[in-house]
Design a protein around this nucleic acid. Structure first.
Lengths: 127, 127
DNA sequence: TATAACAGTATAAAAAAGGATACTACATTA
DNA sequence: TAATGTAGTATCCTTTTTTATACTGTTATA
């Protein structure tokens, strides 16, 4: 039994899935990878996410100590996001999840060759 | 890009998390482990789950080819659940997720020593 | 002067996930 | 005869998650 944020988990796996589950978190972590990305760069990397969701998920990840947020006191604003050490320690696991899904897709389904486990466009055009 | 059940995934990791995400699926898979369990045994192993959710999640897992369902034509009914090969191939990944959560909990938080990555009570009293 | 870029916030709504309760049929047990 | 165990369904309801849309203030650019 484990407790985090007033939630009781029977198993630490549940905690892990709370931290990286949902529609966006793992994708954000994955795309951050080893890079530092600005808010707008992340937004462009995940075109389907709304601004609100991106903000919300980044706040959660920051609160959970997986993502670091650095605010440049500039105008117009500049905010950079990067993985903390805890966040980076998730990368191999995310890679495993990705690889398993790939195998699953290739064995069970066939819609979609050319799958990749790399973040699609590691655009590192920081300003 | 990959498609499964009319859902488009940008990355196969999203697919994986759809298959094992949610409140119960990973826990069910984990508790099945190498055992075969009857519906009521699973229910007792996860006391908090409702009958509806257990049925629903097991159906999903079956549809996705992760769990096998064997019906004995008896009265009262007897139905046994076990992992398929695809399901078993997830076990190492679940163990990794569990272990990561354990480390995270020990480093970030402290509420809850004696965490375990073993299914709490591997009760294998099949009738 | 109007527009775009930046990093958001606010509000409402829709969709998905999860939960509570009652019910089924049949056989065995008390 | 009534209660219990089996593996569920059916219905309704609540909570959580996700989406859509409009809006903020400042600066640089066209």
């Amino acid at each position: 039994m484990i407790q985090y944020k007033n939630i009781q988990y029977q198993c630490s796996m549940e905690l892990t899935l709370d931290l990286i589950g949902g529609k966006w978190k793992s994708l954000i972590l994955w795309h951050l990878g080893e890079n530092t990305l600005r808010f707008s760069e992340l937004k462009r990397t995940l075109p389907q996410i709304t601004q609100k969701m991106l903000t919300q998920q980044l706040r959660d990840l920051e609160t959970d100590g997986l993502v670091h947020r650095y605010i440049y006191t500039q105008i117009p604003p500049k905010v950079e996001y990067s993985l903390t050490d805890a966040g980076k320690s998730l990368l191999p696991i995310l890679a495993t999840l990705c690889q398993w899904g790939l195998n699953y897709a290739n064995e069970v389904e066939v819609d979609g060759k050319d799958l990749t486990c790399e973040p699609s466009a590691p655009s590192s055009l920081s300003q």
